[in-house]
């Protein structure tokens, strides 16, 4: 009887009758043009369009959830959402804790951006977002690493002089440079990092991963992924 009462209480708490399984897509919502919260308050950007298309192809009902970048992997593991779709680069280190899908953005360049083109990125202070491959790269480059929880703060740090340069995905930095009226500029050559951007899944979720993999493959084969990349990242972006 007690068990029954407990079960009833918990079912009531969980709210709503279980319908068809919904797949929850976790994103950061602060990394334009990959993903951001648009002015209507919804998740938008390249990954929004891609995610919706993938769900449609895989025949899944999907729901968007935003989560801090910092805790995005732990929250996947504890089951708060089922997929990470947040511009996450495929790296060996992350492969140890999550499983990646096939990449949907080819291995891309990272770049330094500073107030002047000759900023000292070898020994100066360089900002990067915490827990990114770029932060790892800066830490090993000999420069002093200054980490921030959100991507926007890494750029703001350069503007207010806390850091001489920011190191991040070039696709993310390009609009900032283009719209800064010459205030910001790229420093040095581009640096290729990571194995492209992929979706991340729990290691026990192979079935779901295969569904998304099939959808990504189909999009690549039909040639609809490249135009989508070009639409959001510009004509100069790397394509498949």
């Amino acid at each position: 009887m007690k068990k029954l009462l407990l079960a009833t209480a918990l079912v009531a708490l969980s709210g709503g009758i279980a319908a068809a399984q919904t797949v929850r897509l976790g994103t950061e919502g602060a990394y334009p043009p990959f993903n951001f919260i648009d002015d209507a308050g919804n998740v938008a950007g390249f990954e929004r369009e891609l995610g919706d298309e993938l769900c449609k192809r895989a025949g899944l009902t999907c729901e968007w959830v935003t989560n801090d970048w910092d805790s995005i992997i732990p929250n996947l593991q504890s089951g708060n959402y089922d997929v990470i779709i947040a511009g996450m680069s495929i790296t060996d280190e992350r492969e140890k804790v999550v499983d990646f899908s096939e990449n949907y953005v080819p291995p891309a360049d990272s770049a330094y951006v500073g107030l002047s083109a000759d900023a000292d990125v070898k020994t100066g202070v360089v900002s990067a977002q915490v827990g990114t491959i770029q932060a790892g790269y800066v830490a090993e480059s000999g420069a002093t690493l200054l980490e921030f929880p959100t991507p926007d703060e890494t750029v703001a740090a350069v503007r207010n002089g806390e850091a001489v340069a920011v190191f991040a995905d070039k696709d993310f930095l390009a609009p900032y440079v283009a719209e800064s009226n010459g205030e910001l500029s790229f420093v040095g050559p581009d640096i290729p990092l990571g194995g492209g951007v992929g979706l991340a899944f729990r290691e026990s979720d192979d079935e779901l991963r295969e569904k998304f993999n099939a959808a990504i493959k189909a999009m690549k084969a039909e040639g609809v992924l490249n135009p989508l990349i070009e639409k959001h990242f510009g004509a100069a972006a790397k394509k498949f």
């Binding site: 708490l13 969980s14 709503g16 399984q21 919904t22 959830v65 504890s78 089922d82 290691e203 026990s204």
Partner: peptide, 20 residues
């Protein structure tokens, strides 16, 4: 399972399919 916490889908609170 290692770092993962996996209960059966029916036991998720709130259930995975309920509205945001």
């Amino acid at each position: 399972q290692g770092l993962e916490f996996r209960v059966c889908p029916e036991a998720k609170v709130p259930s995975g399919s309920s509205a945001q």
